[in-house]
Design a protein around this nucleic acid. Structure first.
Lengths: 150, 150
DNA sequence: TCGGATTAGGACTAGATCAGTCCTATTGGA
DNA sequence: TCCAATAGGACTGATCTAGTCCTAATCCGA
């Protein structure tokens, strides 16, 4: 467990596809749905969320569609997750560790969550969209991550 | 989001309490429920799961209860999460990346998940129960984690 | 030997969350 | 003016989770 939402997974697939096919620039939701074999309504929903988060730009009207808003090398995995699911917090305490946790008085552990949270976040921040879009051999990704001992 | 289950959070609170109060050795579920202000049935459920996973030992009968099965310094956060939620996998693809993912043919991203999964796992493996049980200032935890750049 | 204390194991229910779908309004180009 | 395409929101069905409860098994002490 501790898994990301499926919509987030879809978002990554879509963003990776847009990264690999940056030439036509504008991708209509329908063409993305075809290319990724995801249901169109779902693709539309995901793209809307990514647009709200500023990860993709949208163009309405005929010949409209979606474009990557930023350089794939600058888009980190944690940003994608945050766009789809809100800011990462392993527990309710992790972000704001005083409120939201009824047992805070008894829960001395709560003090540590923000730190742990930050460590996981750091791991996700080391992966960029460009890494994710690189097909097949993950030698490059592995190398990038090996820089810091896991 | 990307948060751990609440039962896992409870498990950590209980384990941390048992770590801090190792003198009486055997803790009855009732006394743990009192000490942590968690509902008794929930505490029982969590302890049962931790017992199955081998993190605590149980003694039935009068004067029975639960004891830590291992040295808190050797129990890592990822082991606790695994005990409560099964092995960590950020997506269905992450563990066994061929089956379980209907879109695998279109999803070139899937290749990267095991790597990312391992990085997050590594972060969680650096935190021990002893760290979590240490109250107040998380200087020690922060120091332990600072060993590897986040 | 008996009775009370305590865990083991499983089933069950109510609630929350999530994925997916659909509808209507808005926008832009031909 | 019409068609193509996104924007925004509401809605539903399915899935998962937390929490509760019940019965059986076990152990200690009187």
């Amino acid at each position: 467990m501790l898994r990301i939402a499926r919509l987030t997974d879809h978002a990554i697939v879509l963003l990776a596809h847009m990264t690999r096919h940056r030439l036509p620039c504008v991708h209509a939701a329908t063409s993305l749905a075809d290319a990724t074999a995801l249901p169109l309504p779902t693709v539309q929903k995901v793209l809307k969320m990514l647009g709200t988060a500023g990860l993709v730009d949208s163009r309405r009207g005929a010949m409209g569609g979606y474009v990557l808003a930023r350089d794939p090398a600058g888009v980190t995995l944690d940003a994608i997750i945050a766009a789809m699911e809100g800011p990462l917090s392993l527990t309710a305490c992790a972000s704001t560790h005083t409120e939201g946790c009824a047992e805070h008085a008894h829960c001395l552990v709560g003090d540590h969550w923000p730190v742990i949270n930050e460590v996981v976040l750091g791991a996700l921040r080391r992966v960029t969209l460009l890494d994710l879009a690189r097909p097949a051999s993950h030698a490059s990704l592995r190398a990038a991550l090996a820089a810091s001992p896991a």
